[in-house]
Design a binder for these strands. Structure first.
Lengths: 155, 155
DNA sequence: ATAATCAAAGTCAAAGAAGGTCAAAAGAGG
DNA sequence: CCTCTTTTGACCTTCTTTGACTTTGATTAT
């Protein structure tokens, strides 16, 4: 094994596997001590090896009783499909195109009807009280974020 | 459970549930003693976990025979409940408060977990690339629109 | 009645306990 | 060498715990 980050990565993945639940909750300082490194190295490991793209979701809480929770998520072929749509969205997105994409998501059973309605409502130009270059940019940003959540939230 | 505040929160919620009446009345000092903490920790727990945004109302009385009464806001009529939350949102909404409200919607089974995650993602400050007075306004606008959709999209 | 006293609950700010960020320094590979 | 990745540490933000002090309500003594 080449370096600390790789070792910690393996360790965390083993923890997840052994837990049998696809979830592991750690104390940053505790792991840091175990591997004799600074706490922020954990942030580095997580940022480079447990990203959405790698198929993980990370939540955390500060303060007393704080924690970092890493969850592994399944991402079959849906990932491809969503990645494709995200590329399609690009940096700007008209309301028209947004509607089409949401319709596609619904038809492919990636979102329910209610979810589709929520997303549509959010991206309506009435809701996004902004002038035009910005509005389309925000809409693109929102839809791409939503797609990430959809992909990485199916338990 | 990770810390005292979380433990006390769970305890109080269990009390409410078990009472069957959506109300619970406690003695601050008594609970503090039970959990071996200072009385003012109860105020902290209440202020951070039993707010209006969370769907609770709190009344209290000082002096001899004093008490703290926590009431869970009735959610029998979804319309009423959503109207209440919309009023709470007002014209501006911080990310913090948005989180609380979404949590409340989830706990009251008005939205699914996936829907909650989608809505949270949309309202994240990372997503709404705007400076501060505008961002909170947009967030308020979005959440209220989403609530409308939720209300009118079922039954 | 009034005042004094006791019995709650409320407020607030400081201290403590996590985790997060960022950029500089150090290493590894080509 | 030059670039990319990893390691470190100083500083930041968020959340929790604690305690001294305040306010309010009830009771008791004058």
């Amino acid at each position: 094994m080449r370096n600390m980050s790789d070792i910690i990565e393996q360790y965390l993945k083993k923890l997840i596997e052994e837990s049998g639940t696809e979830v592991v909750e750690i104390k940053r300082a505790h792991i840091a001590e175990k591997f004799d490194c600074v706490p922020s190295q954990l942030n580095y490991v997580i940022k480079t090896r447990f990203t959405n793209e790698h198929g993980y979701t990370v939540e955390s809480k500060r303060g007393g009783g704080g924690y970092i929770r890493i969850t592994k998520v399944e991402t079959h072929s849906k990932a491809e499909y969503l990645a494709h749509l995200k590329r399609l969205v690009g940096e700007q997105l008209s309301q028209q195109n947004a509607k089409h994409i949401i319709q596609s998501l619904y038809e492919n059973e990636v979102v329910t009807q209610k979810e589709a309605k929520i997303i549509s409502a959010v991206m309506d130009r009435e809701t996004l009280m902004l002038e035009l270059p910005y509005r389309d940019r925000l809409r693109a940003k929102i839809l791409k974020r939503v797609m990430d959540v959809i992909l990485y939230s199916e338990e």
